[in-house]
């Protein structure tokens, strides 16, 4: 029963029957203060680390952490059945601790662009090491937690962030990596034309929105997820589009997903 409910998110993400993360390459998770989308990120972390390629090799996760320290993710992923310390030792989990990332502009030596290039360079180097270690291209996932903190580190320069994300996107096409980004959409709710969120939405193959229920707080339902899949071609050249909406409840060790009205 639990497995079936878990698969509701996988099904919506197009991960249901595939061993690899997906034919979709760019995932954007949007959440808000009332409803955190962290659990979706953790779910995708687990999927990325537990995915296997056709030769049986495991997936590699390059994690750019701006929101939490390693111990936070380690504790949560342990509950989901992943040992990040072991995976890190095996070079399958690369953790970029960016909690203190700051790209000041103006002193000439450390510019915002310089900081973005440096961070991208570290990711690119990690991709290079992973491929040289025998990891197949399709099994490398880059995760950014989260974009809004990256924007703060860049002193609000959305353009530099978009350049950075674009370069990460080139890795998805040239090295067959996947890219997962978390962003807080309500930060931009008061802006007439948010310069960052729209380009990211255009870029994403799958957009996952975590929102509170429109009817207000409920004890049995913690919020709703809307998964919008843009047209991405699968290996047979066919395009797929869909939008799914379902509710969720975050539990101690897992998350329960269900369609509205399906619970008694």
């Amino acid at each position: 029963m639990e497995k079936m409910k878990q698969s509701l998110l996988d099904e919506a993400l197009g991960l249901e029957e595939e061993e690899e993360i997906s034919t979709s390459r760019v995932f954007l998770i949007e959440d808000c203060v009332e409803t955190s989308g962290d659990f979706v990120l953790h779910h995708l972390m687990k999927r990325a680390l537990s995915s296997t390629d056709r030769t049986g090799g495991g997936g590699v996760l390059l994690f750019v952490a701006l929101a939490h320290p390693f111990s936070h993710y380690d504790r949560i992923l342990r509950k989901l059945g992943c040992n990040l310390i072991m995976l890190r030792d095996n070079n399958r989990f690369v953790f970029f601790n960016m909690l203190k990332l700051d790209c000041p502009d103006g002193d000439g030596t450390h510019t915002i662009e310089g900081g973005a290039v440096e961070l991208y360079g570290r990711i690119q180097k990690a991709v290079e090491i992973s491929t040289s270690n025998g990891c197949n291209k399709g099994c490398i996932t880059i995760m950014i937690d989260d974009i809004s903190l990256l924007e703060i580190a860049a002193h609000g320069s959305a353009n530099h962030i978009l350049n950075f994300v674009h370069y990460c996107h080139t890795l998805t096409t040239e090295m067959d990596c996947s890219l997962v980004m978390l962003n807080h959409s309500d930060i931009y709710s008061s802006m007439e034309s948010p310069g960052l969120i729209l380009p990211l939405e255009y870029l994403a193959d799958v957009i996952i929105k975590a929102e509170p229920l429109a009817t207000g707080l409920a004890t049995d339902v913690h919020g709703q997820l809307t998964v919008a899949k843009n047209g991405t071609a699968n290996e047979h050249g066919r395009l797929s589009y869909w939008t799914r909406n379902f509710h969720f409840k975050v539990k101690e060790n897992n998350v329960e997903y269900f369609y509205p009205g399906s619970r008694t």
Partner: peptide, 22 residues
């Protein structure tokens, strides 16, 4: 104009970071 629009990869090449892109 997609693969390296701002010349970042060239800069990184100078730092010894190189990936064999398609």
């Amino acid at each position: 104009c997609y693969s390296d629009p701002l010349g970042w990869k060239d800069k990184l090449l100078g730092l010894g970071i190189h990936v064999n892109f398609s």
